[in-house]
């Protein structure tokens, strides 16, 4: 079953809305981010700021300073890109209780093209002290993430996708900073974040048919990263591949590389966008074209295991 993370976000906001501290802001994309659902339910605590990402984020900081729990949303490329300095100074430095939930992360944004495909947000946001950074795999996990972070003090960045994604995590518990073991295997470990999990599981199935048993770990939290699980599976399988819908710099692959080289140097291969901008086209097809595919993952794994 395919479900929309954005829809799940909107529904969860409505659920949380009975708490009067919850305030939602958007920058003229409420019909795309689905914060419009909150607007319909709680119009007095919803603010469509217009196309003003910087102001939106600055206002969110002020709301947080006044005891509110603001959720601010737009496309990842605009809320992180346009508003970065405001996020840094007004939210990260002050440790303000602002939840930035960005939709339209990654290349699966599709036809709008490179201007709208945010491929570096996870790295940018992980660079900010106090921020915790989360990329849920599906709609079900999105619900649990939003409910969870609403009541954990401090700033969060959550990245959601535009495309509907296969539902995988039906009742796995979400704990901030904890990786989730999806599948156990001894030959290699595949670690991913965000919506590419379905591709990784498909790759693991292909590998099984080829006599290779792969562990699959979903890493919803990029920061703080789950060091223990990375080291544990590095020791167990001796080979790791990371997969993310993000530039290979500064995202999951880089974070895993840091953990490994400081704690347990291990053979690693990173799959992601290789330092290029995206382009227009259907989202899932772009993911394939840019190598974030089950085929590419399984081929890399086979060559790593056999070499």
């Amino acid at each position: 079953m395919n479900e929309s993370q954005r829809q799940a976000y909107g529904e969860t906001l409505v659920k949380l809305g009975s708490d009067r501290r919850i305030v939602v802001l958007d920058a003229d994309l409420s019909s795309s981010t689905h914060t419009i659902m909150f607007q319909r339910a709680y119009p007095d605590r919803f603010f469509n700021m217009g196309i003003q990402e910087q102001n939106m984020v600055g206002v969110a900081a002020g709301l947080a300073m006044s005891g509110k729990i603001p959720f601010a949303s737009s496309f990842a490329v605009f809320v992180v890109g346009r508003a970065y300095d405001v996020i840094r100074q007004s939210i990260a430095y002050t440790n303000a209780n602002v939840k930035i939930v960005a939709t339209h992360g990654g290349i699966t944004v599709g036809e709008d093209g490179a201007t709208h495909q945010m491929l570096e947000d996870l790295g940018i946001m992980c660079g900010l002290p106090n921020f915790r950074v989360i990329a849920p795999a599906d709609a079900q996990e999105t619900r649990r993430v939003i409910e969870n972070i609403a009541y954990v003090d401090g700033p969060f960045y959550v990245r959601l996708s535009r495309e509907k994604v296969p539902t995988i995590l039906v009742d796995e518990v979400f704990d901030i900073g904890k990786g989730i073991v999806i599948r156990e295997g001894d030959d290699i470990t595949l670690i991913s974040t965000g919506i590419v999990l379905s591709r990784v599981i498909e790759a693991a199935e292909t590998l099984a048919k080829n006599g290779i048993s792969a562990s699959v770990i979903h890493m919803p939290t990029l920061k703080p990263i789950d060091k223990d699980i990375i080291v544990k599976y590095a020791i167990r399988t001796g080979r790791i591949i990371t997969v993310e819908e993000h530039t290979v710099f500064n995202g999951l692959g880089s974070r895993v590389a840091e953990v490994l080289s400081e704690n347990h140097p291990t053979r690693l291969s990173r799959i992601g966008i290789n330092d290029v901008f995206g382009e227009s086209g259907p989202g899932w097809e772009l993911l394939e074209k840019y190598g974030i595919s089950a085929k590419n993952i399984s081929e890399k794994a086979i060559s790593m295991v056999r070499s």
Partner: peptide, 13 residues
Amino acid sequence: FRKIGSMLQGHPT
């Protein structure tokens, strides 16, 4: 327009 490999990206370049 807006197809993979096209010169005509979703937004002008």
